[in-house]
Design a protein around this nucleic acid. Structure first.
Length: 273
DNA sequence: GTACGGCCCTGTTAGC
DNA sequence: TGCTAACAGGGCCGTA
C-alpha cells in the first residue's frame, strides 16, 4: 500500500526515464476514476513530481497528469515488442513516441487518475487541502502541534487525513506513534509529545525511503523490484508480538475504520473515547 | 464547519 | 475439499 516512501521511490524511477517523451496514444478503464487518463494524449512529459502520495506528471501544454496509486496501483514500462496489450488489471496506458508504453495496473481500483490545469486541484479535495511535506523545513513540531490541536478527532485519524502532514498512511502512522510513545487514539497532545511525534514521522518515512519502500503484498517499483522496509517495521502488523522496547505484546484495535497496532504499556493506556 | 460511518474494489485468509 | 465471510484500507461523500 503505497505511502510517501513508496510513491517517492516510484517517482524517482519514472522521472529518470520519462521527461522528453511525448504521449502519442492512450487508453483507460471506463470508470470515471481512470477514464480521463486518455486526455493526456498529444502532450509531452516535462517532469514527474510528487505531493504526498500523489504523483504529478507535468505536461508541456500547461496541464498535469495526476495519479494516486490507491492500495494496489503500480507502474511498469514496456518496450514496443514487450507490450502485449492491457492486462486484466490495467487501468490506463500511455504509448510514447519512442515506442515505449507506460502501463498503470491497479487490482483493487482504489487508485485514481486525473488530468487538470496545472495547479488546479479543486477536483481532488485531499490534494487541494494537503498538509506540508514532511521533509520540508516548514513542517516543524510546532506546526504539527497546532494542526493536531485544531480538531478533537483521534490523532491518528487526523494524520491519515493528510492535512497535518502529507504522505503518512496506516503503516508509517503506526510506526511514528510507536516511536514517539504517543497513543494513536488520543485526541489531545502536549508540545513535547508533538515534538516526539514529529521526529517519529520524519524518522519512519526516512527509514522507509532508505529501504526503497515497504512491500507487504502488492507494492513494486517500476522495474518490479520489492521494497525492503517491511523487515524493519517495529509496530505495524506485529499484533501479539513483543514490543521491541518493553517486551509487552503489541495490541491492535479498529478506530474510525482503520486497524491500529500499538503498545499499551509504552504508548500509554487506551483513551476511553 | 466538524465528526463519523459507509462505500468502493478484489485477492487472500480464516473458519466451518 | 470446498464454500462463505471477514479482512485489508485511501479517499470521497452523505448524514447528523
Amino acid at each position: 500500500m503505497p505511502e510517501l516512501p513508496e510513491v517517492e521511490t516510484i517517482r524517482r524511477q519514472l522521472d529518470a526515464v520519462l521527461p522528453g517523451a511525448r504521449i502519442v496514444a492512450a487508453g483507460a478503464h471506463p470508470s470515471a476514476k481512470f477514464a480521463t487518463a486518455t486526455t493526456a494524449k498529444g502532450a509531452a512529459i516535462d517532469a514527474v513530481r510528487r505531493r504526498g502520495k500523489y504523483l504529478l506528471v507535468d505536461l508541456d501544454d500547461g496541464r498535469e497528469l495526476i495519479v494516486h496509486l490507491g492500495m494496489t496501483g503500480a507502474f511498469s514500462i514496456a518496450t514496443g515488442s514487450e507490450h502485449g496489450g492491457p492486462g486484466p488489471y490495467t487501468r490506463a496506458w500511455w504509448e510514447l513516441d519512442d515506442g515505449r508504453t507506460v502501463v498503470f495496473d491497479d487490482t483493487r481500483r482504489f487508485g485514481r487518475i486525473a488530468v487538470v490545469d496545472a495547479g488546479d486541484y479543486r477536483s481532488l479535495p485531499t490534494l487541494h487541502d494537503l498538509g506540508p511535506e514532511p521533509f520540508d523545513p516548514v513542517f516543524t513540531p510546532k506546526v504539527l502541534w497546532e494542526a493536531l490541536r485544531s480538531t478533537r478527532r483521534r490523532l491518528k485519524t487526523q494524520l491519515l487525513s493528510q492535512r497535518p502532514v502529507a504522505g503518512v498512511g496506516n503503516i508509517y502512522a503506526d510506526e511514528a506513534f510507536w516511536s514517539a510513545q504517543v497513543h494513536p487514539a488520543r485526541r489531545t497532545l502536549t508540545l513535547p509529545q508533538a515534538e516526539r511525534l514529529h521526529a517519529g514521522i520524519v524518522e519512519a518515512l526516512r527509514q522507509g525511503l532508505d529501504g526503497g519502500g515497504t512491500t507487504l503484498r502488492d507494492y513494486r517499483g517500476v522495474d518490479g523490484s520489492r521494497g525492503e522496509n517491511q523487515f524493519r517495521l517495529a509496530c505495524y502488523g506485529r499484533r501479539g508480538l513483543p514490543c521491541h522496547r518493553c517486551e509487552a505484546p503489541l495490541e491492535a484495535a479498529v478506530w474510525d475504520g482503520r486497524t491500529t497496532t500499538f503498545c499499551h504499556r509504552c504508548q500509554g493506556p487506551t483513551p476511553r473515547r
